Amino acid sequence: MTAVTADATPGGRSARGLVELVFRARELSLVAALAVLVLVTTAVNPNFLSGQGVKDIFLNTSILALLAVGQSLVVITRNIDLSVGSVVGLVAFCTGKFVSADPTGRGVLTALVFGVAIGAVCGLLNGLLVSFCRVPALVVTLGTLYVIQGLDHYIAHGQQINAVDLPPALLHLGNEGVLGVPYLPVITVVVMLAVGYYLRSYPSGRDFYAIGSSPEAARLAGVPVRRRVLAAYLFSGALAGLGGVLWLARFGTVVADPARGWELIVVSAVVVGGVAIVGGVGTVYGAVLGALLLTTIGSALVVLKVNSFWQQALTGALLLLAITVDRVLAVRVTRLLRKRSVRHGA
């Protein structure tokens, strides 16, 4: 399913395949851009591809990519979630405070359940307001962003969570791995594969694309639009909660609102990764590639000793380019489908 409507006729099925092929080229272009970026940076500084350098890139990408997976479901349904960064901050601090109160009795599993539950509650609130109260998603999630930030600062009261107060197993999750591969990227890849398989293989997963393509048509086709949008926000919030726990495990020391501004980076990663901001198009694989590209650009600029301002400028330029490309491709594909439809009708 895509943002371009295609019927169930043989011509419609071939048109749908054409649309999928065109937009899948976006993901291949991201891989090519990553390869060029890595090759150029390595040519200038061979240490960029050292074992520790590669490990740092994957660790730095993991949480952003995890949030991008959740955000993808929301954007595919033609909505947006600007509260994910504040949810990460709230969960990271609250979970740290919770487990540090009894570091021997509250281990990794307890921390994960606690953090995901907080994130899910935040996502549920967003989903109810957007899907059932029909408040615009931009207004709802911008409002909850500030509410959650304020709640985080109120709970923190200027305090700080220190790594020495956390269970060693939790810190091990964030900084160690298996067979040389850190746990955080493994978790992200597992989540990505599971969500990607669900969206492609299950009718309920394809409903998200139908809603993004045309909410009214999806409703007439019997798709439970409100429930699916609610589920998208619930899932995005739960993954943001998981991201908050992993943030705590990764960095150990946490203050109030540590992920301030991440909501825009997450949206940028999703859109750069080929998930159309108008909904109905994209995959979680592309979103993760977008997150990896943005993180690699940041690491490359540090290695090349370029001012960090240019990372923000490049991110903005990539975002504008991605939206422009989406629009151009959508217009051209629509014209091509109309021509095929006329020929098929003739």
Rank of each mutant, 00 (worst) to 15 (best):
A249G: 03
G252P: 07
D7M: 03
F48Y: 09
A6E: 07
A25Q: 02
S204R: 15
T253K: 02
A221E: 04
G177L: 06
V4T: 15
T188A: 09
A92I: 02
S214K: 01
L21E: 03
K55M: 12
V302K: 12
V190N: 01
V181I: 13
P185M: 02
T110H: 05
T334F: 10
V190C: 10
A35W: 08
I297S: 11
G123Q: 09
V135W: 06
C122F: 15
V229F: 00
V284T: 13
I118Q: 08
L18F: 12
A111T: 02
W247E: 05
T2V: 00
V178D: 01
A313V: 15
P136R: 12
C94T: 13
T283E: 01
L184P: 13
T77D: 11
L30V: 09
Q52K: 15
G119P: 03
K305S: 15
R78F: 08
L125I: 15
L193W: 00
T144V: 06
T296Y: 03
V178Q: 07
V38R: 08
S72Q: 06
L337Y: 05
A346Y: 14
V164A: 14
V190R: 01
A249Y: 10
G316F: 12
G150N: 09
T2P: 00
T253Q: 06
G115A: 06
V186T: 08
V116C: 11
L234K: 04
L248A: 05
S86Y: 03
L239S: 03
M1C: 02
V271R: 05
Q311N: 11
L109T: 11
S268I: 04
L318P: 10
T324P: 05
S62N: 02
G241C: 08
H157L: 13
A291W: 09
T141S: 06
G12L: 12
L289W: 08
H172R: 14
T77M: 11
G119E: 01
T144R: 04
R24Q: 14
V38S: 02
L28Y: 13
A256V: 02
A163V: 06
C133D: 10
V91W: 05
G12Q: 14
G261V: 10
G316W: 13
